[in-house]
Design a protein around this nucleic acid. Structure first.
Lengths: 139, 139
DNA sequence: CTGTATCCATGGAGATACTG
DNA sequence: CAGTATCTCCATGGATACAG
């Protein structure tokens, strides 16, 4: 066992399930987490963000940013006195609470990539799973 | 700042982005993580799993289980000598490496639920975010 | 630059019925 | 029980053109 399960009883599991589903509802989809990750580098403008989040279209970026802003994960600032107008998106403090999630995903993504390399895309892998990178605590 | 960002430079961010996208490709969608979570309680049969993963249809469950098995996250065992046949799904060791991911999502989901309670579904919340539950390290 | 509007293709996903 | 087969609807999301 690499990690103790997040629960111990069926009742706890139900609770865990709800929380995970809640998180997934907000963060699900292809783009939400990559956008957050892009903004974790610092405030960015629309075009900059579109360059950094590879493959996203303006329509999607616009829509996702709107949702993320509504959920308080980022803030939108318009510099109207310039031409053309500049719009800057900044990760809100609440958005930074997602770092543990992104960190965990990042670590697992690397682990998985490493595993793929050694098994050729699928199948039952090396018996011993390499130690995942540390996921520091928030406390 | 609640947590140090998973990177420090643009180059690091690109790498992080790739890993996160890799993870999302495998774990994305409504059901994969909830299924893993359900199986973290222990081996389960098809029907049992469908009961525990609230809302999933047999078709979806079947499809998702097939994908998760192909990726080595769980194993399928058929007890053919019984009638009716019993099929059991078990979380593979590799599947347990997802606990940190699920743990992070679970903690954040709880944090978010707590936040919702205090702000009435949206908007800019209490200035100080409540401390998230600990995300224990894998080490 | 920062988007929005429109059109359109794909596939995610539910309902239902059916098989071994 | 443990699925598969169809049918269908609708959200996701790309391409393109347009607007402030």
């Amino acid at each position: 066992m690499v990690y103790p399960p997040p629960h111990t009883s069926a009742a706890t599991c139900t609770t865990a399930m709800r929380s995970v589903r809640d998180a997934l509802d907000l963060l699900g989809g292809k783009w939400k987490l990559p956008i957050i990750l892009g903004l974790s580098e610092g405030p960015k403008r629309f075009k900059q963000l579109q360059r950094d989040v590879t493959g996203i279209t303006a329509k999607m970026l616009s829509k996702e940013l709107k949702e993320l802003e509504m959920n308080g994960l980022l803030t939108r600032h318009v510099q109207a006195d310039t031409v053309p107008v500049a719009v800057t998106y900044t990760l809100a403090p609440y958005g930074t609470t997602l770092y543990p999630v992104i960190g965990a995903l990042h670590n697992w993504g690397q682990l998985h990539r490493h595993r793929i390399m050694h098994t050729g895309e699928d199948g039952h892998p090396a018996p011993s799973v390499p130690e995942a990178a540390a996921v520091p605590n928030v406390a």
